[in-house]
Design a protein around this nucleic acid. Structure first.
Lengths: 253, 253
DNA sequence: CGGATCGTTGAGAATTTTCAAGATTAGTGG
DNA sequence: CCACTAATCTTGAAAATTCTCAACGATCCG
């Protein structure tokens, strides 16, 4: 596991009206009035390095974030150090909602690359719900989407073989990343280590290594130090017996 | 797997003002005005038998439900029949939200006992968000809680040994059931088969049987045909290395 | 150079699955 | 009442998967 570093905050603030994410076809268009509120809701930006702990289990964060750029992951630890990665976070994802609503964070979030996060204040959530039902609905929508992804991940860890699981994970990450333009058409590059894969799939590092090798041999992915490239999304999905996410237009808060 | 039966609907309608659930200490008190809306929001009740399919993957349900009484579970199937149980549903739980928000159900729900469900209409969700921000907030809260439980389940399936996993599951179900008065102080009776346990833990039926035997031998649970009794919640939690759910007061919609 | 991270490999050990069979119980139709 | 079926739980043993242990190679960086 990478040694977590401290977040580094910056003052620079992207204008929500010129949000680089919102024009993507995957995100629904916003009303002028919604945009205005979000602009006001946004308190600033947080820039973190690769390997930084963005949110930590057990803490009471006063903030929630929307990922503007970069990769990260959500995870839980057991007292004896076993780690389970729950999901990956990518641009457009809202993180810290659980902590904001229910008080204490029940999981941590760490970055896989430098990340830029839009910072919102928990205390303004109430106002959002009171005055902007459309945005409130969007937040619930995003929570339901996270739940749906967790359902898929749980099915995978519980019922797929090691090889299927690894194929599913690569296809899952790849298709999500593609939808938000994180990876180009020809450079499906994912910045994770085999330890991350192991902790996501619920497998040992050694067995993960051997499983990844099989995917490489089949030319479905290519692994290089500190990351991998997805070569054949279609093939991965077939191997995993996975239908793919319904990638419908979604809100961006 | 039990053969799913058809739901049976009834006309009888509990008065929300006399809701048998709301007085429980685990649920937060409602404003008079919230209660009034919920009463209007509630379209009726659905009574289903044990083994009924309440919601089915792939369908577009126009309803969502709050469980008034009984047990059930959420699950996903793979094309070849492998089944993963994602979570259990108990009184006070809201089901069908994913389907209502995102269109198509991505999982199914089946009953483990006769159940009584309060029926709400998807179309009125919008009005709820527009006019009752407190309730909207509650719904998001419930979605976040579901996500939190899924996180725990995923950690368990991914990183706990078979014995720990089984212990966790029993403690998890037991503590949730206790919180909503589903099981009395001395009769911690859970109506599930070993096949359900296997499909929850991601284990084979045979190995699940042997694992459950170990829990029985340690006097942590007692298994009888078609269900089990939890004997030692504390012991189960220690064995699973599980801290328990933060059982805070929660909303009931 | 020395330390740290990351990936790779072989081999034995442990866990878990699969296969096959049987016991018990409850319900059903004759 | 009885024969029969279906569901559930049990058990043993072989097979397959996965884990642990123990190395080692490569790269990067101060």
């Amino acid at each position: 596991m990478a040694k977590p570093q401290e977040p580094i905050s910056t003052v620079r603030k992207h204008d929500c009206a010129k949000c680089p994410l919102r024009p993507l076809p995957i995100f629904r268009a916003f009303e002028q009035q919604e945009l205005a509120f979000v602009t006001r809701f946004k308190k600033g930006e947080l820039a973190v390095d690769k390997g930084a702990t963005v949110l930590v289990e057990g803490s009471h964060s006063a903030h929630l974030y929307t990922v503007l750029s970069g990769w990260g992951f959500r995870f839980k630890l057991m007292p004896d150090g076993r780690r389970q990665i729950l999901n990956y976070v990518m641009p457009g994802d809202l993180i810290g909602l659980q902590g904001s609503l229910m008080g204490e964070m029940q999981h941590s979030v760490e970055s896989l690359s430098p990340m830029l996060l839009c910072v919102f204040e928990r205390d303004q959530l109430e106002e959002l719900y009171r005055n902007h039902p459309g945005l409130a609905y969007d937040i619930t929508w995003l929570a339901a989407r996270e739940e749906q992804m967790l359902d898929e991940n749980l099915l995978s860890v519980g019922r797929r073989s090691a090889l299927e699981r690894a194929a599913y994970l690569m296809a899952f990450i790849g298709s999500r990343a593609q939808a938000v333009g994180l990876i180009g058409r020809r450079s499906l590059e994912v910045p994770i280590t085999q330890q991350h894969v192991a902790d996501t799939l619920g497998l040992s590092l050694v067995h993960t290594n051997k499983t990844i090798r099989k995917l490489s041999n089949r030319k479905l992915i290519a692994w290089h130090d500190g990351g991998c490239t997805i070569l054949d999304m279609e093939g991965l999905m077939v191997l995993a017996r996975w239908e793919g996410l319904g990638q419908r237009v979604r809100p961006l808060v």
